[in-house]
């Protein structure tokens, strides 16, 4: 992959989020290149909704996404491993209650 900084002619990268139907969350589906937000939405429409995958599109330029550092994974996520009491599995749920 070419580094964007080394190739100014290349369009910036955008992350694409699609809502598959009304009421559901937008989900990350992938990324694409586009010159601006409008083109990014159109490209997303053509690349990611050709098979009726969505009813709404969000795009955001990838450079605005801030990610956690994988090197910190141990301190960030492992402490949760031994705290099983945070899961709701200790509660007795009535049978009538669905989708929990």
């Amino acid at each position: 992959m070419s580094d964007q900084n080394n190739n100014k002619a290349e369009w910036p990268l955008w992350e694409v989020f699609i809502r598959s139907k009304a009421g559901l969350d937008h989900k990350h589906v992938g990324s694409l290149h586009a010159a601006d937000a409008e083109m990014a939405i159109e490209n997303a429409r053509d690349v990611y909704t050709r098979r009726m995958e969505g009813v709404s599109i969000w795009v955001i330029e990838s450079k605005y996404i801030h990610a956690s550092d994988p090197d910190n994974a141990a301190s960030l996520y492992e402490p949760a491993n031994d705290k099983i009491y945070r899961h709701p599995t200790f509660y007795d749920l009535p049978d009538e209650l669905k989708h929990m």
Partner: peptide, 8 residues
């Protein structure tokens, strides 16, 4: 010229 426009 680019994948996205090829598909479009």
């Amino acid at each position: 010229p680019v994948l996205e426009q090829d598909i479009a």
